[in-house]
């Protein structure tokens, strides 16, 4: 069931993302990092660390967090929030799994940046 204005876009198979890893998705919303955790949960964040815009998709995924490759900030995959002493937040996106396919929510009113 979808709410008016909600558009889910089919992105890839969950198997296309390495376990404890990430893929970059070039979308109308900009570059999005798509993560898969050890327990096969999928998360999506803007591919930008709140610190110095480091590409989070290139970080090491552990538990429900990713460590930014530039300066080791740890970002929550669930909220996009910086963990520990650091503060800042990366925009997170809604994703869902349907029969092993990863779908990303695109709101119609977002502007396209890519």
């Amino acid at each position: 069931m979808s709410i008016a204005g909600e558009v889910w876009v089919d992105v890839c198979d969950i198997l296309d993302i390495p376990v404890r890893g990430a893929r970059i998705v070039k979308s109308p919303l900009g570059c999005i990092a798509l993560f898969r955790t050890a327990d096969d949960a999928v998360f999506a964040l803007d591919d930008k660390c709140p610190h110095k815009a480091g590409p989070l998709s290139q970080g090491i995924v552990h538990g429900r967090s990713v460590t930014c490759p530039l300066h080791n900030w740890v970002i929550s995959l669930e909220t996009g929030e910086a963990q520990g002493a650091d503060t800042g937040r990366t925009r997170h996106h809604k994703v869902r799994l349907v029969d092993g396919r990863v779908q990303l929510l695109m709101s119609n009113n977002e502007t396209c940046a890519a």
Partner: peptide
């Protein structure tokens, strides 16, 4: 990278 377009993949 994975590319997604708005059109066609809805």
């Amino acid at each position: 990278p994975i590319a997604v377009e708005n059109a066609g993949a809805l």
